[in-house]
Nucleic acid binder design. Structure first.
Lengths: 210, 210
DNA sequence: CTCAAATATGAGACTCCCTCACATTACTGC
DNA sequence: GCAGTAATGTGAGGGAGTCTCATATTTGAG
């Protein structure tokens, strides 16, 4: 087998990486079932028995794939984060001047907001994140990673600014962006938009003149 | 009895308001016990049986005072919020100019941060808030109330600005302030301070020129 | 002192998470 | 094909908590 014990859901998996085709399919079935159930009833109402039933497997089998309930949620969050990180990386990669930075940043915020509105399961996990310490840490690491990318772009645009200050600013801006998104998606479209726009204005100032 | 069925913890209480002295004392004993347990082990580890034991009453009795576990936590949050609201009101009441607004706002942020650091139980409840939908709504209402007070002060200083825009800004600023505090208290003193200061700088711009 | 209303009690019903001893299926070398 | 072994699957049930309810005790008014 090519891969050793593999990480699943942020902590060591309940068992070695699935070797057989059947297993890999089941893993996807589990994650799909969980996504649907979370979208329907919220992650706090997620029952392991229901995930197993919907995925068409037994409880015992479910626990072969995930050591506990929060590992399922974490796995979903990680997949989502990986995708997001790619978008951020891509958007900020070519930034060289103020205009580029502005466009990239505003575009990312809009993208985030739209994605959140479109993916109910992720929205739910993200809103209820604070319930699970592992998930909070995961998301904090994610904020840090995204903040670092933003800081890099900002530093490129402001070569003479203090790197440490830029780093703190970028991390904070990103983290507050997430908070603003959470706030926006809990409002109706119109108010949500207004909040997103207010947040853009507010943080853009800081990005352009840190 | 002067008061009808009374609200406790945000939803209708398990029973009518306590009539006898004994009851009122027990209620305080329960809340004290809960506060201590949360400070010691976190609100997610709070056990009803332990609250009852520590308060020196039976489980059944505990459920006469609170319909469920989250009602205890909500009651603590509400008491805390009421106190905070008073501070905000007081700090912003006399604001008439830019200097006054600046001083009041910066002072409030520092106060919030210090209080959070000083009160472990509240810090825990506040950090884990997203776990409980009732608590999220409660805190959102609180943000709105505080945002409204801030908006009023801002409007006084900027009489010609669009009231709706001011309102959105103030609400967002306050909400992000809470997010920044949560972030800061999850870091060590030095980094926490740096984040608080960065946040002050960033939001102050918006407050002074909305 | 009596009686009703208020309050207290804790065994246990219930709901979930997760484990484990055992059953089944897939793969390997013959 | 066919053992034999590794991988995977199963679901009854152990355990931890939350909350209920039938019953007991305390309080206060008349």
């Amino acid at each position: 087998m090519a891969e050793e014990d593999r990480e699943v859901g942020g902590t060591r998996s309940a068992r070695r990486a699935p070797a057989q085709q059947r297993s890999r399919e089941r893993l996807e079935r589990i994650l799909t079932a969980a996504t649907e159930l979370i979208a329907a009833k919220g992650s706090d109402q997620l029952k392991m028995s229901e995930v197993a039933e919907r995925a068409g497997i037994s409880i015992g089998s479910l626990y072969q794939y995930f050591p506990d309930k929060s590992a399922i949620i974490r796995t979903l969050a990680e997949r989502y984060n990986a995708e997001n990180r790619r978008c951020i990386q891509e958007a900020l990669a070519g930034v060289q001047d103020l205009e580029g930075l502005t466009a990239a940043y505003l575009g990312l915020i809009d993208l985030y907001y739209e994605i959140m509105l479109a993916e109910p399961a992720m929205r739910d996990i993200w809103s209820g994140m604070q319930a699970d310490k592992h998930l909070v840490l995961l998301e904090l690491a994610e904020s840090r990673a995204a903040g670092a990318m933003l800081a890099e772009a900002m530093q490129r645009v402001h070569p003479h600014a203090d790197p440490e200050k830029i780093a703190t600013s970028a991390f904070l801006i990103w983290h507050l962006g997430e908070a603003a998104m959470r706030l926006a998606i809990s409002h109706d479209r119109e108010q949500g938009r207004a909040l997103v726009e207010a947040h853009k204005r507010m943080t853009l100032r800081e990005i352009l003149e840190p």
